[in-house]
Write a protein that binds this DNA or RNA. Structure first.
Lengths: 287, 287
DNA sequence: CTACCTTACGAAGGACGTAATTATT
DNA sequence: AATAATTACGTCCTTCGTAAGGTAG
């Protein structure tokens, strides 16, 4: 199961086309066809249905493995490169939208090191973690909601070092006229049948909400795919649905604390092995 | 980074010899030398020091990734095979030593299916999980200690289905004359400086204990590498050290409950996608 | 001098591109 | 008919084994 073949398989499945995958990967259509045939022969199973191109059950199963495998392979390569490569004078940082609220601390740490070029990018949590694991970023700043004693769940791409930089209560943001407005606190599970706002980039994604509440439900009323906090709050205020957010983000909108289960919103700084510049940056973070 | 090369690299590092790895893998010494050279060239780093053969820093880092990568690759292959292969009339089960306490339920489930051949093997938790992930076993029965709401931590080899079959309080087993004997309960962190019995196969391994207590310490007084419960209890009774165990296992020996953090000992039945025979077995488990 | 890793070299196999073929819409 | 995957085939590159060469203990 050559990673090369796996990469091609993933591309074909994603694009739904041999030829499109070929041009994306810089192969001929024929080469891609041969690679898929080789993979199918190796595994002894048909992985793709043709015309239209779409994964079989076995292929879908393989896809679930292929991503993590390719990610870990990249992480291994990056890890070795960091240990044996030349030190860099620049620091690449990736942050999730809400973690960017720590911008003041970030800017301060950046100012304290005038000699290093600092690059900041914004992405979803798994992407930030993947970037750090594969060395595309030196540092990640990511946020999420968990039980107080649990770490934020990250895709398993090897050992990453994690440091909590902020932790605060979570609240359910809601519209002013909502029946729950004014309540002191609620149990998350009691809100399973409420109308939720699905904003995976900014608020807690609904699948995670189900896992945290250990309950089904939490159906999306409206989906907001952007990453702007003000827009999200405006939508909540307009009654589009509930959103689980860190307390400090919710200002202009009523909110109710969550009593059960016990949850916190945490911002973590995560990195693999560091270059000297990145290490200094992490040290400077603590002021 | 061909998995083939990775496998060879792991073998060489483990055996500390190119020639030994060659004979284990069925290559000539020369082929192994060329494979390692190819891997080092690909990654642009020296991975092994020669004479004596031992990993460099970069090589050690790569080793941390190689195991999980190879495991996941095997899991992917097994998963595809299960979905497209022929149904089997036998069920292979792997259990951890303490999970074997569920033997009555196990035997009952086996008896209820006279037509299928049932194989049972005993191994450590990670090995059981790896066997299930790679398809070496259909079902795993494994045990461990965690927070009540957390699943047992398993090596990440893809999505496995998990079902709790037993859950009970944990206690610290100790010798009759121990100062703590008679106490109602203790906080785990308060025992960091006590003398512990390191019995990774039967009791909670000490590194895990440190993680659960979120404290350093828990130094081993004596290490018991066997997997026999009676021997373990005899050692505890003889004052060799403390052991964190499920309550039901501790009978002849004094024990103290753990108040903080809240912990349980859980036994879980875990499997990937199931053959018909294995599925019936799982169903029969519930009587 | 001896065990053991590396290098040289040739043969076998594998991978990719071009081009012809087949199959689906 | 047109679009798109497969097969045929030649070339190049890779990989392995045999055998010779180096090197550390």
């Amino acid at each position: 199961m050559d990673p090369h073949l796996l990469r091609t398989f993933v591309a074909v499945a994603r694009l739904g086309s041999f030829s499109a995958a070929a041009s994306e990967l810089g192969y001929t259509q024929s080469a891609v066809s041969q690679q898929i045939a080789a993979l199918e022969h190796d595994l002894g199973a048909t992985l793709l249905l043709r015309r239209p191109v779409r994964p079989t059950d076995a292929g879908a199963r393989l896809l679930e493995h292929a991503g993590p495998i390719l990610l870990r392979l990249g992480a291994a390569r990056a890890d070795v490169a960091r240990l044996s490569g030349p030190p860099s004078a620049s620091v690449a940082l990736q942050v999730t939208p809400l973690a960017a609220l720590d911008a003041p601390a970030l800017a301060a740490a950046g100012r304290s090191m005038p000699r290093v070029a600092l690059t900041v990018g914004v992405a979803a949590r798994d992407e930030v973690a993947a970037a750090v694991a594969t060395g595309a970023a030196d540092l990640g700043l990511l946020d999420g909601v968990t039980a107080p004693s649990d770490p934020l769940p990250l895709p398993d791409a090897g050992p990453l070092t994690t440091r909590t930089v902020a932790e605060e209560p979570v609240v359910v943001a809601l519209a002013a006229g909502h029946p729950l407005a004014g309540r002191r606190s609620v149990r998350l599970a009691d809100l399973a049948d409420a109308r939720w706002l699905d904003a995976p980039a900014v608020a807690t994604p609904l699948p995670q909400l189900r896992a945290l509440a250990r309950a089904e439900g939490f159906r999306p009323g409206l989906t907001y795919s952007g990453s702007d906090r003000a827009t999200l709050l405006a939508l909540v205020a307009a009654g589009a649905g509930l959103a689980l957010l860190p307390a400090s983000v919710v200002a202009e909108v009523p909110a109710v604390g969550v009593a059960e289960p016990r949850l916190v919103h945490r911002t973590e700084l995560v990195h693999g092995s560091l270059t000297a510049a990145a290490r200094a940056f992490v040290a400077a973070w603590g002021h």
